[in-house]
Amino acid sequence: MRYGMAIDALKCVGCSDCVVACQTENNVPIGYCRDWIVEKTTGTYPQLQMEIRSERCNHCSNAPCVRSCPTSASHYGKGGIVLVDENACIGCKACIASCPYDARFIHPEGYVDKCTFCLHRVEKGQDPACVAVCPTKCMYFGDLDDPRSEVSQIMKKRKWKTLIPEAGTSPNIFYLI
């Protein structure tokens, strides 16, 4: 089993609902976020093009954060979800330096915090909070190893890309373009 997410960059309007839902669901301390919005504008007026992406930890299959962690606090959990064991984290920040997506931050309590794909919800068969709340229904979450899952189906139909594949991280968040 390999959990992944496909996000439709053509449908996303950048409303930040996913960001707020995540902060509420996961009690993210004020001033921090586990997911965020990137608006990328290219071209010269009037020929402009905009891509809006909801970004978060890519739950990489070859995660540099897991590799660089000296205590195994960063580890692969169920379905390849990259997690942090806060009681093993010493706060050395090597994982933060090693993440090309800058998806990690230091929780005010000292340990490193990040997106968990809402594992506590996924275990109950629910979607992650960001997916569940999206008003344009632009996110798909599921098992990439299962060809019948919603996320596998949509990726068969649509063109997609990952972020910085050349960093060698094998990310598991896909942007439908």
Partner: peptide, 23 residues
């Protein structure tokens, strides 16, 4: 000319606008 503007909604201390975890 091609302009590329990236606006991010993220403002995590020690990462944004630039990584500064080690002093």
């Amino acid at each position: 000319m091609i302009e590329e503007i990236i606006t991010s909604g993220r403002m995590n201390h020690e990462i944004d606008p630039q990584l500064h975890i080690w002093g």
